[in-house]
Design a protein around this nucleic acid. Structure first.
Lengths: 257, 257
DNA sequence: CGCATATTTGAATTCTTTCAATCAACGTGG
DNA sequence: CCACGTTGATTGAAAGAATTCAAATATGCG
């Protein structure tokens, strides 16, 4: 089974063959599969392992006692739940499977060994954690200050960028397994309103969404409508500073090599 | 200068005298003071140091091109900006000083040494990072799904809990240097609406707010109104599992020693 | 084909914002 | 000590955005 975490981390830094092998090795830990709509982790659970999504989409969510629900993160292939979760005694949120999800359950010790032996991987994992925190902040800006239309457009931009980073887009299209109800829980609106706003985006030819597939005919225009600035995804190969100069094509370009 | 980070981490785990001394040592790094309303870090900066707030309140915020602003985190004394920020090449948000703020600028190397030599401190710092991520998630739930009244009440509960954890409450009162405009940027509303909602909370005798001081006459009742569940602050001394049994009073209680 | 799930539509209501003014608190200089 | 300017808090009325509730269509799957 290929490990999409490698593709993800290579957006940040150049990895040696040895680094890649070590990451590939994570997939040797126990695999789990989940049916669409089931919970992978429930609020209150004791998190004993670190989870890495290999295939399918999952999402973190929180719920109020009366049932109101907010999706607080999306896990795409290659996404890792916090690599230090196991120090907590209790989860403060749940994780659900959107479609069919395959993930690995990694023992804390495996991670600690990996990080002790591979400093470049350690940096890359730090980067991974910082990016997911940055995504959370961007979502707060989304929820608090963007209009409904901007919000929905922003989600589409982000998902497209993230999927593209791990090679899961096909031209101008990508998967979009979220229902309008899921989208509503993601951007803090009602499903009815998501529907109306989506129709607006469609009328403006900013997106096409049908049969669980998303098409973005003109990404720059959608970005403008969303006030989308990809800086928060930190996809600029900043880790190049930890590379040997010239090792990585993008790093080489950036540093004029 | 006392180091409030020690008090903060001791909410999670028991520290040895040696651990405490090492943390105290952080305060030997260069101190900086900022005037109210000034920026400590600006979006686009290259983060070369890790910052630890010693006194005063600061806040992270993000802004849209047209000026709409969202506060995405509050830094109270003892709060640390991400202890691995320096792997990024560019900040995706800004940090501003609310009142007068004193902080230390810690070199990455200092941190790495501290963590290499003090495994218990390392765990505690991981916990710190996980808690701030959890706070962000709770804020998303706040922005996306709580009503205006619940949102405002929730902010008051959280601030009170966090200040109490580091010994900065006095009975039922604490500082509250945020103006109504600041609160608006925090909970994604307009200042006008904050004002009206605040009046509602006052009428219900849930809070008193005057002269930059907050009084919560009956915390449990405010918590109910806010749908506040403190689990996300992870203040349950979970780290006790990394303590020698019996070392820490709360841990001892939990484990029946 | 038929059920279950997801999307779409309409109308009425509720919540927030907007815009404009007014009021209150506070620190400064005369 | 008070006038004055600045900032923050408060109020009102009207416009705008989003939700609610209910019903009607689509769509996908066994």
């Amino acid at each position: 089974m290929p490990n999409p975490l490698i593709a993800k981390l290579e957006q940040f830094t150049h990895l040696s063959d040895d680094d890649r092998a070590a990451l590939q090795n994570l997939v040797a830990e126990p695999l789990r599969c989940y049916r669409p709509g089931t919970d992978i982790v429930s609020e209150g659970d004791d998190p004993k392992v670190v989870r890495l999504v290999l295939a399918g989409w999952a999402y973190r969510y929180k719920q109020l006692p009366d049932g109101r629900r907010q999706v607080v993160a999306l896990f795409l292939p290659g996404d890792l739940c916090d690599h230090t979760v196991f120090v907590l005694s209790e989860m403060d949120h749940s994780i659900g499977a959107l479609g069919a999800v395959t993930l690995v359950e990694i023992q804390p010790a495996t991670f600690e060994t990996l990080m002790a032996d591979h400093p470049r991987v350690t940096r890359a994992l730090w980067w991974e954690g910082l990016v997911s925190a940055a995504v959370q902040r961007e979502w707060m800006l989304n929820l608090g200050r963007r209009s409904a239309g901007e919000r929905l457009a922003h989600v589409f931009c982000e998902v497209f960028y993230r999927l593209r980073g791990i090679g899961l887009t096909q031209g101008t299209t990508c998967d979009m397994p979220l229902t309008q109800t899921d989208l509503a829980d993601l951007i803090g609106m009602t499903p009815v309103h998501v529907n109306r706003v989506l129709q607006m985006l469609r009328r403006q030819r900013l997106v096409e969404l049908k049969g669980r597939r998303l098409t973005i005919p003109d990404l720059p225009t959608l970005e403008k409508a969303a006030l989308f600035n990809p800086n928060y995804l930190h996809l600029d190969h900043v880790g190049a500073r930890f590379d040997a100069v010239g090792q990585h094509p993008a790093a080489a370009a950036r540093y004029g090599a």
